[in-house]
Amino acid sequence: MAVSSEVLMDELKALRRGRGVQAPGIDRLVGPALREVCGIGEHDGAEVVREKVVGWVAGSVRALPEDLRLAVTTPLALNPEAQHVFLAHRVQWLAELMGRDARTVRRRIDDGLTRLVEAAVRPGARRGRGARDGWRVGRLQVLLRLDGPVPLCTERWTVVAEEDGVQEVPWPGPVPESTGEQDVRVAHGAVLMSGERSPARRPGFRVRLPRSLRAGESHEFALDVRMPRVQALRPAHVFRTPRPCDRLDLVVRFDVDRPPALVTRVGGEFDGAVAVNSVGEVEVTFLDTVPGREYGIRCVADARSRTERRTG
């Protein structure tokens, strides 16, 4: 169903009263708009509802500036340092932290909730999007290093459980397809079912989390992947996720002395040239990625190659 931004805002303002998300019987306090964006089922009990609301808010505020994150989480009683019984006391705590008066802080709170609602109702925003095994990708951060003798890729995954009991997930493997073997190691937050260090040809790996997640909970783990040298020679560095991903952040680091002459985005709502910064890095972000589609960058190595491409 389509979610009304006005209704969702009213429901969030109502939820922040009193104990906020810590209120007993929260399943009776959330309205239809919140149920839709959080993926709350008809028969979900109070604790499951609470976990799903917490998971949705936590995932949605990651991209916000710190002051707006606090302006959202503190009134809703999601800030562990401000677990006051009444909303007015939480607002006062935030005002003292920010060094502002309560009126200014309340405006900041409204700004934060507005951003939260905008993210929920934007075209393409979907909840409850996981596969049959009950999880989705909340955020994927990829650092691809092409400035050394061997291409290295660090993947930082935030997975969100949409059902109880999620503890093992297949390695989604966003690393570009390769003709050679990839050496995969866990940096933190999980174990590979076939070992900490293994040569891998996608697909096949599974990742085990430290504990079983309940619906609405999220967990972060990171992998380091060493790839064949041929990866650095490709004109495009694109990634695919096997299921929807709320946010994909990609950083590609080139040799600072030999940056590409031209870099353009691949996939997403916007295209066009992307700047290489002074340390040889390109940063791009994609929201609500579609499974199977390519997202990343395309490079032209030098001015001569750029001319040949235009005239070819």
Rank of each mutant, 00 (worst) to 15 (best):
E162R: 04
G173F: 14
Q182V: 02
M193F: 04
V160K: 11
W157A: 05
Q141V: 15
Q182Y: 00
V184L: 10
V169E: 11
R208I: 00
P203K: 07
V160S: 14
E163N: 11
G173W: 13
D147Y: 01
G204Q: 07
G204T: 10
L209W: 08
E181H: 07
C153M: 15
A200K: 01
G189D: 13
S198Q: 07
R202A: 14
V150N: 10
P151H: 10
G148V: 03
L152H: 06
T154V: 14
R156L: 12
E155L: 05
V160M: 02
A190I: 08
P174T: 05
A161S: 05
P174I: 01
G189E: 07
G173A: 15
E181S: 11
P149N: 03
E196Q: 14
R185P: 02
R139P: 10
P172H: 04
L143T: 14
P170Y: 11
P170C: 01
V184Y: 13
D183G: 04
Q167H: 00
E177D: 11
E196S: 03
V175P: 12
V175Y: 06
T154A: 08
Q141N: 13
V169D: 08
P172F: 06
E196A: 01
D147A: 11
R197D: 12
R201T: 12
V186S: 02
L192G: 03
D147V: 02
T179H: 10
E162A: 01
Q182R: 15
R156Y: 02
F205C: 00
A190N: 08
T179V: 10
G180P: 13
F205V: 04
P176H: 04
R202P: 09
P149G: 14
Q141W: 11
A187P: 13
D164Q: 00
A187L: 11
P170K: 03
S178N: 09
R211V: 08
D164A: 05
L192H: 05
D164W: 03
T179R: 12
V159H: 06
P176C: 10
W171I: 01
E155D: 14
E177A: 08
G138W: 10
E177F: 09
G195A: 04
F205R: 06
L192A: 13
R201C: 00
D164C: 00
R156G: 05
V142E: 10
G195C: 03
P149C: 02
T154D: 08
H188I: 03
F205T: 05
Q141A: 15
R208S: 01
E177W: 08
D183F: 00
D183E: 07
E177T: 14
R211D: 06
L140A: 13
Q167P: 07
L192C: 01
D164G: 07
R145G: 05
R145H: 08
P149S: 14
S194C: 04
R145K: 11
